[in-house]
Simulated scan of single mutants.
Amino acid sequence: MHPFIFKEIVSVTMILFAIIDILGAIPVIIQLRQRAGHIESEKASIVVLILMIVFLFVGDKLLDIIGLDVASFAIAGSLVIFIIAMEMILGIHLFKPDEEMSSTVSIVPLAFPLIAGAGTMTTLLSLKSQYQTQDILIGIVLNTMFVYLVLKNVQWLEKLFGKTGIDILRKAFGIILLAIAIKLFRSNTHL
């Protein structure tokens, strides 16, 4: 067992923080909460934590078993993000809320693919080749704790921004999310 390297922990934590971009996802989280009624922050955070840890250890093997490459996985994630972005920009609802939605929204699309999506998963695979596993695990735990804090305080954040502020943020972040989806799609297609 190698000793923990503080510099590596900080690097991994910052890289994952940038990829997860929970602050940038606040308008999406607010929109999902409004449509579903509430968000189960504990459930979403636990699912994010489990997804990232499992993918860190068996992600590449899992994709091999089901005959997928990382690029296909990333493209699928980009399409879901694209649809969410279009909903935000155009103010339309492609996914109609149903009675089941309030219990599942915390997992799909919130935990996956929004927080622990294709970008996060592919980043974990590349971090594995550069950093020690225990340092990556600490980075995952720290990011999950931050995700939980944001999800837990989303109502307070909603009050802080107000309806107009949220509408402006939703449109702006919708465009950013759209750009991320297109970049993820382009960087994983060889057209």
Rank of each mutant, 00 (worst) to 15 (best):
F55L: 10
I168M: 12
V54F: 12
S102I: 09
S102H: 11
K7Q: 15
S72T: 12
V150F: 13
L125Y: 14
I176W: 11
I26S: 06
I22A: 05
K163F: 10
K171R: 15
N143W: 13
E42A: 11
G91L: 04
Y148M: 13
E158L: 08
F82W: 01
I140G: 00
Q155F: 04
N153R: 15
V80C: 00
I9H: 08
I46A: 10
K183T: 07
K61E: 09
E100N: 10
I138L: 14
L191N: 12
L177R: 03
Q34V: 04
V12E: 05
L79M: 13
V147S: 11
K159L: 12
I75R: 14
I115H: 12
R170A: 07
P113S: 08
P3F: 01
L49T: 12
T104V: 09
K152A: 12
T123E: 07
I140T: 03
I176G: 06
I29C: 06
A44E: 05
F55T: 09
A76Q: 04
V108G: 02
M88C: 02
H38L: 14
G117M: 02
L124S: 04
K171F: 08
I5A: 06
G91D: 00
I50Y: 07
S103W: 06
L68S: 04
V48Y: 00
A118D: 07
I53W: 02
I136V: 05
K152Y: 15
P27T: 12
D60Q: 15
V147E: 09
F112I: 13
L94W: 06
A116N: 11
G24C: 13
G59V: 11
D64Q: 12
S41E: 11
L94Y: 04
G165T: 14
D64W: 01
K61F: 13
Y131S: 07
I168N: 02
I15W: 01
L56W: 04
A179G: 11
R186H: 10
G139I: 05
A85N: 02
T133D: 04
F57C: 03
A36I: 07
S187N: 13
K43C: 00
F161C: 05
I46S: 04
A25R: 01
Q31R: 05
M121R: 01
V12P: 00
L149E: 11
S102W: 08
D167F: 13
F17G: 05
G67N: 13
I53T: 10
I138K: 08
L23N: 13
V10Y: 10
K163E: 15
V70C: 02
I92V: 09
D167T: 12
M14H: 06
A172I: 15
V28C: 03
L157S: 07
I140L: 10
V48Q: 08
A85S: 14
D135W: 03
Q31M: 15
D98W: 02
T164K: 15
G24E: 10
A181F: 01
K61Y: 10
I39L: 14
L191A: 10
P109Y: 07
R186D: 05
K61C: 07
